[in-house]
Amino acid sequence: MSRAAKLTFLGSCVFAVGTIWFVHRAQELERESMYQGVIRDQERKAQRAQNQREFAETRALHAELIKQQPDVGEAGGRGEHA
C-alpha cells in the first residue's frame, strides 16, 4: 500500500471512531437530561402535594376562625348610617 492510501485509511478510521464516540456521548448526555426531567417532575409533584396540604390546612383554619368570630352582619354591617 502506498503512503497516501495508509494515511487515508488511518484518517477514515480516526473519523469513524470519533463519530462513534461523539454519538455515544450525545446519547449519554440526552439520557441524563431526560432523567433530570423525571426528577424535576417528581419534585413538582411533591411540591404540589405540599401546597395542597397547606391550602387544606389554611382553609380549615379559616373556617375555624370564622366560627369563632361574632356575626358581624347583625351587629351593624348594613344601614347604620341611615
Results as ranks from 00 to 15, higher is better:
12 S>G: 15
82 A>C: 02
62 H>K: 03
50 Q>M: 13
17 V>H: 06
64 E>D: 14
35 Y>I: 15
46 A>I: 11
14 V>E: 06
6 K>G: 07
20 I>Y: 11
34 M>D: 12
42 Q>C: 13
20 I>R: 02
26 A>F: 12
76 G>M: 00
56 A>S: 09
8 T>G: 09
57 E>R: 05
76 G>R: 01
15 F>R: 07
30 E>Q: 14
33 S>K: 08
43 E>L: 13
44 R>E: 13
46 A>M: 08
76 G>L: 00
8 T>N: 10
63 A>P: 02
39 I>R: 06
63 A>C: 03
19 T>R: 09
64 E>C: 07
64 E>F: 10
40 R>N: 15
6 K>W: 09
38 V>P: 02
42 Q>R: 12
47 Q>K: 06
68 Q>A: 09
39 I>S: 01
67 K>F: 01
58 T>H: 04
74 E>Q: 01
25 R>G: 14
52 Q>H: 01
57 E>L: 05
28 E>L: 13
57 E>M: 08
66 I>H: 00
78 R>W: 10
28 E>V: 15
36 Q>N: 11
9 F>H: 10
5 A>E: 12
21 W>G: 10
61 L>M: 08
35 Y>K: 06
21 W>S: 13
51 N>T: 08
28 E>G: 12
67 K>W: 01
38 V>C: 03
15 F>V: 10
19 T>Q: 07
66 I>W: 04
70 P>D: 01
33 S>I: 12
43 E>T: 14
60 A>M: 03
23 V>Y: 12
79 G>Q: 02
5 A>T: 13
49 A>C: 05
62 H>C: 05
39 I>V: 14
79 G>I: 04
61 L>F: 06
1 M>C: 09
19 T>H: 09
59 R>C: 06
70 P>W: 00
50 Q>A: 14
46 A>N: 08
13 C>L: 10
42 Q>G: 05
57 E>D: 06
51 N>P: 02
74 E>N: 00
72 V>S: 00
47 Q>D: 11
77 G>R: 00
